[in-house]
Design a protein around this nucleic acid. Structure first.
Lengths: 232, 232
DNA sequence: CGTAATAATTGACTGTTAGTCATTTAGCAA
DNA sequence: TTGCTAAATGACTAACAGTCAATTATTACG
């Protein structure tokens, strides 16, 4: 009796349709300015139905965000595979994060909602759990690269891989955020190209955690950056 | 005729009283969960009066935030005065930001609202202007220290002071944010002390922008950190 | 004083919207 | 055809930011 299964499939499909509608609206107007009524209308469903599939507007928002997070995870995993060496992998990951930021800025912006629990009014514990699971998956990827790098003598032995991952990721993240919000202001008032700052910051930190020998051999960074931080 | 002036003073005082009430509530419940009715009641005024002094709830929130920002600015300026040398000044500023974070976490949390324009629904251009003015003041302080450091040969000549300031500040900020939200999780799942990560990240970046000679002479960092990033 | 003019304050009201739930509709089995 | 279950509906409620006509307090002036 495949009826049960067909029903499951149909339900899953409906979940996706709702998500599609929500994504379109959240991208266009953000969390605050999108209403559940609008999303329902776009999904050609009634508002009540949305609540059969998602516990709250915030859960729905995070469900869309998770799509973006999956995408980023895929891109980072891909970059890691392409690289021939752990330090290069880290550098590529930084590049790929920038690429993600450029191409999928709407997703990038959604990440912050997860990061500020002060904004959560109706996030369900289950959704929170899902989000934590996803983030841990990506952290693991980065930390593993560091561990391999240490074993291969590319990263300093006295570097704690988890700490290094936190430092590199956090700083990348916060500079991207600044690019998103203040890029023009910095360009105009101080003639600073924040995108350059992003890559230089990554290069600087990468150098700091690499062994001097490995850094001397690594050409991938300097090929793309004339000097680590230059008086442009 | 001092009546005009007395009225001015009274008005200013009322502005402060409203701000006090708002601060108490925002600290306790955050932006979203505090209502203008509650703030009005606490200030022993009617809701309509609040709108005579502040254009919107968000403006009021940012006005409270600016108090915190002033406080941070004072603390940073003080740290800078205490230091005998630009690199030490930078290190002290990092320490002082942590101190601020510990003692005035409610203010720290408020800063993020300014940083995410996606959250702004009713922020007035005037308030935005005030906030930008304040932040620029603090940026100038940090950048000046860098400039002095370069002149004194403490920081690398090929370092753009503005870029260095952005990198150091951004990374500090985003690690503090992580401490605020995820400190326990990192401790429990990976046995990582994010506070250590904060100071090590600062030390790492500071070293990266210092001249080797100046770093060799600088004892203030290593005195407080056995190793920059250690396998604890 | 008393009164008119002005300024400050009020709180009832409006519009919006997240979330609910009794009712209806659709799909399936017997 | 009938009864049963699951899915979907949309009118309704509660909460709340922001408004504004009416009220009260303050000052200026004859």
């Amino acid at each position: 009796m495949g009826i049960q299964e067909r029903k499951e499939r149909e339900k899953e499909q409906r979940r996706e349709e709702i998500l599609n509608a929500a994504q379109r609206l959240f991208f266009e107007k953000g969390l605050q300015n999108s209403t559940m009524d609008e999303i329902a209308e776009l999904a050609e469903l009634s508002k009540g139905t949305l609540y059969l599939y998602y516990g709250s507007k915030e859960d729905l928002y995070l469900a869309v965000m998770l799509r973006g997070f999956d995408l980023l995870h895929e891109m980072i995993a891909e970059a890691e595979k392409q690289a021939t060496q752990p330090a290069e992998a880290m550098w590529m990951m930084g590049k790929v994060y920038y690429e993600f930021f450029e191409k999928h800025r709407n997703f990038f912006r959604m990440f912050h909602f997860l990061q500020y629990p002060g904004l959560h009014k109706q996030v369900s514990p289950e959704m929170m759990e899902s989000c934590n699971g996803q983030t841990q998956k990506t952290w693991k990827l980065v930390i593993d690269v560091f561990n391999r790098g240490i074993q291969e003598g590319v990263f300093r032995r006295d570097v704690n891989p988890v700490e290094a991952a936190v430092i590199l990721w956090s700083s990348a993240n916060s500079i991207l955020l600044r690019i998103d919000n203040e890029c023009d202001r910095w360009k105009q008032t101080l003639n600073i190209d924040l995108t350059q700052v992003y890559f230089r910051s990554n290069a600087l930190l990468l150098q700091a955690v690499m062994t001097p020998e490995a850094y001397a051999r690594a050409s991938f960074v300097s090929e793309e950056l004339p000097t680590t931080i230059s008086q442009s």
